[in-house]
Measured scan of single mutants.
Amino acid sequence: ATVHVKGVTYHFDNPEQAEKFAKRMAKELNGEVHVDGNTWHVD
């Protein structure tokens, strides 16, 4: 799974980790999470 945060890409072997990371980053950055298959975007 892949997480894109403000133009930076993070790779996770575990999709659950990717989801938790994306949601945590969105919270910290006051952003929104969008999911597209195995790819998470934090804007």
Rank of each mutant, 00 (worst) to 15 (best):
A1I: 13
A1N: 08
A1D: 04
A1P: 12
A1L: 07
A1Q: 08
A1E: 04
A1M: 08
A1K: 04
A1V: 11
A1C: 07
T2I: 12
T2L: 10
T2C: 07
T2H: 08
T2D: 06
T2P: 01
T2M: 11
V3F: 01
V3S: 00
V3C: 03
V3W: 00
V3D: 00
H4R: 13
H4C: 06
H4S: 09
H4E: 08
H4V: 15
V5Y: 07
V5C: 05
V5K: 01
V5T: 03
V5Q: 01
V5R: 02
V5S: 03
K6D: 14
K6G: 15
K6H: 12
K6P: 03
K6V: 07
K6Y: 12
K6W: 10
G7K: 04
G7C: 03
G7N: 07
G7S: 05
G7D: 06
V8F: 11
V8L: 10
T9E: 09
T9N: 06
T9D: 06
T9W: 12
Y10S: 02
Y10F: 10
Y10W: 07
Y10V: 04
Y10M: 04
Y10K: 03
H11S: 08
H11G: 04
H11T: 08
H11F: 14
H11A: 07
H11Q: 09
H11N: 08
H11Y: 14
F12E: 00
F12L: 02
F12S: 00
F12K: 00
F12Q: 00
F12T: 00
D13R: 08
D13L: 09
D13V: 09
D13I: 09
D13C: 06
N14A: 08
N14W: 08
N14M: 08
N14Q: 08
N14E: 09
P15A: 14
P15K: 11
P15Q: 11
P15W: 12
P15Y: 12
P15S: 11
E16F: 09
E16Y: 10
E16T: 10
E16C: 06
E16L: 11
E16N: 08
E16V: 11
E16P: 04
E16W: 11
Q17A: 13
Q17V: 11
Q17E: 15
Q17K: 10
Q17Y: 07
Q17S: 12
A18N: 00
A18F: 00
A18S: 02
A18W: 00
A18I: 00
A18D: 00
E19T: 04
E19V: 05
E19Q: 06
K20E: 15
K20F: 09
K20L: 13
K20V: 12
K20C: 10
K20I: 13
K20D: 13
K20N: 12
F21A: 03
F21T: 02
F21M: 03
F21P: 00
F21E: 03
F21L: 02
F21R: 00
A22Y: 01
A22D: 00
A22P: 00
A22C: 03
A22L: 02
A22I: 02
A22G: 02
K23R: 12
K23W: 13
K23E: 13
K23L: 14
K23T: 10
K23D: 10
R24I: 11
R24L: 14
R24V: 09
R24G: 07
R24H: 14
R24C: 15
M25L: 11
M25N: 03
M25T: 06
M25K: 08
M25I: 12
M25P: 01
M25H: 04
M25Y: 05
M25C: 06
A26Y: 02
A26H: 03
A26T: 03
A26P: 00
A26N: 03
A26F: 02
A26L: 03
A26D: 01
K27R: 10
K27H: 12
E28A: 09
E28K: 12
E28C: 07
E28N: 06
E28T: 06
L29R: 03
L29I: 10
L29A: 04
L29H: 06
L29S: 05
L29W: 05
L29E: 03
L29G: 04
L29P: 01
N30K: 11
N30F: 07
N30I: 05
N30D: 09
N30C: 08
G31Q: 06
G31N: 03
G31M: 15
G31I: 06
G31H: 04
G31R: 05
G31F: 09
E32V: 15
E32F: 14
E32R: 14
E32T: 15
E32K: 14
E32C: 09
E32A: 13
V33E: 03
V33F: 09
V33W: 13
V33S: 05
V33I: 14
V33C: 04
V33R: 02
V33T: 06
H34D: 04
H34C: 06
H34P: 01
H34V: 10
H34Q: 07
H34A: 06
H34G: 04
V35H: 13
V35L: 11
V35F: 15
V35P: 04
V35I: 08
V35W: 14
V35Q: 15
D36W: 11
D36H: 13
D36I: 15
D36E: 13
G37Y: 03
G37H: 05
G37S: 05
G37K: 06
G37D: 05
N38Q: 08
N38V: 07
N38E: 06
N38P: 05
N38A: 07
N38R: 05
N38W: 09
T39S: 13
T39M: 11
T39I: 13
T39E: 12
T39N: 13
T39F: 07
T39V: 14
W40R: 01
W40C: 01
W40L: 05
H41I: 15
H41R: 13
H41W: 15
H41V: 15
H41N: 07
H41S: 10
V42I: 09
V42H: 01
V42A: 02
V42E: 01
V42D: 02
V42P: 02
V42S: 02
V42M: 02
V42K: 01
D43L: 15
D43V: 15
D43S: 15
D43Y: 15
D43G: 12
D43W: 15
D43C: 09
D43P: 04
